[in-house]
Design a protein around this nucleic acid. Structure first.
Ligand code: MN
Ligand code: MN
Ligand code: ZN
Ligand code: ZN
Lengths: 138, 138
DNA sequence: ATGATAAATGCAACTCACTTGCAACTTGGA
DNA sequence: TCCAAGTTGCAAGTGAGTTGCATTTATCAT
């Protein structure tokens, strides 16, 4: 069976503080990538307000442990989503309303090998995001 | 024959000022995407110093006219490259030295159609960038 | 050529995402 | 229970990018 996020944190010598658990809970509940500011807002609504800088430090740490992934959608701020225990996938975002939809697919396995052969790079990541207009904003 | 960038600017009612022409010259000479700061640096070296804000305003305008494309490589700042008259393509960047290499390919035509069918979005753009380690940094 | 007008520029001040320094406060293990 | 390491919050800092505004410049009609 798979190691849980809390197990990974313990394995990484991290402490399970109250703010940290609250941040993690929000990330795990979110099915789409969210911003640091949105995490802080949700914490405030849940009367568990945590300083913004603590959210920043926690998502940075979670990235280092490869438990969350950054998703850059050219909005000025980054979004983050849990990757631990979830399928690798991509997103599409509406240029009108900003809506984000998960695309549970990745066509890049074969292409990655081709690019490695061509460039001699050792590829360890890629970003693939689509942009367009959703049915409502069309 | 294709319309030149200067033609597009005139068609867009833009003036051909000295700073603007200098910025355009640097963008057109650059085969890889460059940052606003790098453009300003090159201008300074060429003794044609132009205010940073003027460079920002010009790349924004060139984006609106679809003459340059933004390339977001998660470095904190955006890069821009001329797209007018050039093939659509993607990039790979080394996580060690930051080196960027053009990948003159795009595997996304068919996938775009599939995603449009699945999501009902009208897709008008995508980003695809690879990250990894170049032979020297391996 | 000249002058009118609209656009573009440069400077300074500003915003916003994100980072850093540091003292005070948890956490988890001895 | 005590302690050291890790974490937190606050305040201040950084750096990319934006905005307001007075001045300058390009273009075009005369
Ligand atoms: Mn997702
Ligand atoms: Mn390129
Ligand atoms: Zn929409
Ligand atoms: Zn390298």
């Amino acid at each position: 069976m798979a190691e849980s996020i809390l197990d990974s944190l313990r394995a990484g010598g991290k402490k399970l503080t109250k703010p940290r658990k609250a941040i993690l809970a929000i990330l795990e509940q979110s099915s789409l990538p969210i911003t640091v500011a949105e995490i802080a807002d949700q914490l405030k609504k849940a009367r568990a307000a945590v300083d913004l800088v603590t959210v920043y430090r926690n998502v940075a740490m979670l990235q280092e442990l490869k438990l969350v992934n950054p998703v850059g959608l050219h909005e000025g701020q980054m979004r983050y989503e849990v990757c631990h225990g979830r399928e690798h996938h991509h997103h599409i975002q509406c240029r009108g309303c900003g809506q984000i939809v998960d695309l549970m697919l990745c066509p890049l396995k074969k292409l990655t090998e081709l690019v490695e052969r061509k460039t001699k790079f050792a590829i360890d990541g890629h970003v693939l995001e689509f942009f367009g207009w959703c049915p409502q904003c069309r």
